[in-house]
C-alpha cells in the first residue's frame, strides 16, 4: 500500500488522494457486506441441505436444482387485487358445458381438500411441506363440464394477469384454487382471498388474487410468459426463461 503523501507540501495531490481513499473504502465496505451476507446465507441453510437429500414419491429430487429452502413464502409483488371476500367471484368458463361463477362462501361449500405441497419460485427459493386447503382444479373442471377439446387452462387474476398451464398439470392432484395455507388465510401480499396453486411448476403459475379459470383449446402465453419467462416452467428442468 502506498504511503500517504505530504499533502501540506503538495496540496495539489489532495483531491486525487481523497478519491483514492474513497474508492478503497467503498470497495472494502462492499466486500465486507458481501462476505457477511454470504456467511449468513450459508449458516442458515440447513433446510436446503436436508431437502437436497430427500426424494419425491415420483423419484425426482425433492428440491429442484438451483433452489434454496425458506421457511415461509416471500412476497414477490404484483398488482394486488382488493383482497375482499365480499366481492370475490371466481369464474370457471371457456370450453365448458356448464360454466359457472362462484363467490367466496360458495367456494367454501364445494368439495375441499387439504394437500401437502412444495412450491418453487423462479427466483430461487422454495417452501416445502405447506398444507394448502382449497378446491382441486379438477373438481372445478368436472363441475363446469369441461369439453374434451380443452388442452390448456388459463388462470386469470386481478388487473388482467394470466398464467397458462397445460391441462395435465392444471388438473393434477395437488393443483388447487386455494384460500388457506397451514391453517391460516393468505395475507393480501400472498393473493388473498384466493389464489391458484400449481406446485409442480414454478410459482408464478400459481396466480395470486385469482378471478377466473378458463379452459381453452389453444395455448395463450400469460403475463410473464410473454415477458421472457418459460412457457411451461418445470422446476426440475430449470425452465426459468423462454
Amino acid at each position: 500500500m502506498s504511503e500517504r503523501p505530504d499533502l501540506d507540501r503538495y496540496p495539489e495531490l489532495a483531491p486525487r488522494w481523497d478519491r483514492r481513499q474513497f474508492i478503497k473504502s467503498a470497495a472494502a465496505g462492499t466486500l465486507l457486506m458481501a462476505a457477511g451476507g454470504t456467511l449468513v446465507r450459508i449458516a442458515a441453510d440447513d433446510l436446503t441441505k436436508k431437502a437436497r437429500a430427500d426424494k419425491r414419491s415420483d423419484g425426482r429430487p425433492r428440491l429442484p436444482p438451483g433452489q434454496r429452502v425458506l421457511e415461509n413464502l416471500r412476497a414477490m409483488g404484483g398488482q394486488e387485487g382488493d383482497g375482499s371476500v365480499k366481492t370475490f367471484a371466481l369464474k370457471v368458463y371457456g370450453l365448458c358445458k356448464t360454466p359457472f361463477e362462484v363467490d367466496y362462501a360458495g367456494l367454501l361449500k364445494l368439495p375441499t381438500v387439504t394437500k401437502a405441497a412444495d412450491v418453487h419460485c423462479v427466483t430461487g427459493w422454495s417452501m416445502l411441506g405447506g398444507e394448502w386447503k382449497g378446491v382441486q382444479v379438477a373438481t372445478l373442471a368436472e363441475k363446469a363440464g369441461v369439453r374434451g377439446e380443452a388442452r390448456h387452462v388459463i388462470f386469470e387474476a386481478a388487473h388482467g394477469f394470466t398464467a397458462n398451464v397445460p391441462m395435465k398439470e392444471a388438473t393434477g392432484d395437488t393443483s388447487l384454487v386455494t384460500w388457506r395455507l397451514n391453517g391460516k388465510p393468505f395475507p393480501l401480499q400472498h393473493g388473498a382471498p384466493v389464489r391458484g396453486l400449481i406446485p409442480d411448476l414454478y410459482f408464478w403459475k400459481s396466480a395470486k388474487w385469482i378471478t377466473g379459470v378458463r379452459f381453452v383449446k389453444d395455448d395463450i402465453p400469460g403475463f410473464w410468459e410473454v415477458r421472457g419467462y418459460h412457457n411451461h416452467a418445470d422446476p426440475w428442468k430449470e425452465e426459468r426463461y423462454g
Binding site: 383482497g83 371476500v85 382471498p193
Partner: peptide
C-alpha cells in the same frame, strides 16, 4: 367488511388489517 362463511369469520379494516377466525 365482515363475512362468515364455512368455518371462517373474517373482519377487514380500513387500515388493511385482516382478522380471521378459523
Amino acid at each position: 367488511e365482515t363475512l362468515r362463511a364455512g368455518d371462517e369469520v373474517r373482519l377487514t379494516y380500513g387500515s388493511g388489517t385482516q382478522v380471521t377466525a378459523i
